[in-house]
Design a protein around this nucleic acid. Sequence first.
DNA 1: GCAATTGGGTAGCGGCACTGTCTAATCTGG
DNA 2: CCAGATTAGACAGTGCCGCTACCCAATTGC
Lengths: 215, 215
Amino acid sequence: MRISELSRRSGVPNATIKYYLREGLLPPGRATAATQAEYDETHLRRLRLIRALVGVRGLSVASAKQVLEAMTEHRTDPHEVLGIAFGIRPSGSGDPGAAEDDGTDGTNPEAAALVEAMGWSVSEHNPARQIIDRTLRTLRSLDVAYDWQALLPYAELAERTARYDLDRIESITDPLEKAERAVLLTFLLEPALMALRRLAQENESTARHGGRAHP
Amino acid sequence: MRISELSRRSGVPNATIKYYLREGLLPPGRATAATQAEYDETHLRRLRLIRALVGVRGLSVASAKQVLEAMTEHRTDPHEVLGIAFGIRPSGSGDPGAAEDDGTDGTNPEAAALVEAMGWSVSEHNPARQIIDRTLRTLRSLDVAYDWQALLPYAELAERTARYDLDRIESITDPLEKAERAVLLTFLLEPALMALRRLAQENESTARHGGRAHP
DNA sequence: GCAATTGGGTAGCGGCACTGTCTAATCTGG
DNA sequence: CCAGATTAGACAGTGCCGCTACCCAATTGC
């Protein structure tokens, strides 16, 4: 399959496919000549995956690249992939690297306390820790008295969610397929889970305040 | 308080505050003269809220504006605010309005089935429905056999999350404060909840595969 | 042989979130 | 009363990001 057919079958414009190739999100096709390369079903699949991560989930192209790299390399087992992939940040946020001026070392004490309390075994470097500490700090700066203990019930629910996530990929034997499924469920499901929460919030709000939905 | 003090106390550059004023995210100060306006604590608070929504949560400035408008107007009760605010989309996603070419009418049948099965009472227009249907369609296009029934356990957990969310704001009497808290908990907590899920996933993965965290 | 297609490269575009500059009016200190 | 600083408001410019358009030489299919 040449690039035009790949474009036609995926619905992604020719120029955009070239862009993904340049950026390294899509591996190059098997070159058959100086101006000819052959693509196969794996490229088509990868392309759809890219579109899902970027379009539906809203990852930046750079973040999607990291996820895909982690997924493809999967040095030993899917566990690695999860560990690496879980640290990607959405496109919206600003500067990675140096914190603006809030003098935060890399300790994230609140996340650590939470992990300890839950009895979890997670890497010190998991960037999810940062997100938790940052969120709590931000909330408190807005006079919302939240600390890690306020997150405990949420952590409990997250634990069940994670168990359910892992159940769903346990039966897959092919490691690459398993890694792909893990990425899909982790990232692509995030907007849907938040959507579920909002539906449930509206329902719960309706139930408590007795109001009916706006027409 | 004049603009410079507002800038100094919030850490937001002068020019950026003017930008937010232009965009309508921050209400104008009380003009005392042609080149003088007075800002107060509510402006400072609002500014911090903007920064939290845009910086931490990653909302686009336009989305943040909608959230803030819904929050401020709060025609009758916080229930309205939740209903409106819950429909905001993150900045990452592409074109609102016309769906690309996947001929989707506005029905979102899977979300409807899920809502029905859960016995929820939510508006037909809640955009969370769209997100759910879109996510499921995308997953299936990637050969992941998911339908609304696969989301039921997640919906169950979302319901508990929502109950906990509503518990936390129930005691607030001032309607504007309540609306603000609802917005904060709904939006600002989202990254943290996803972070919790990832921590729990890593933990669960470690437990099942017996691996230890990467050094 | 020759139009059409392709790979590969570079340049440009539109949107977004600011940022810098300018002007005229106003305030402050002496 | 006046010099110097500050301010509101308007507008142009910047840097980044995700494409998109164009160009060229090589290759292909007819």
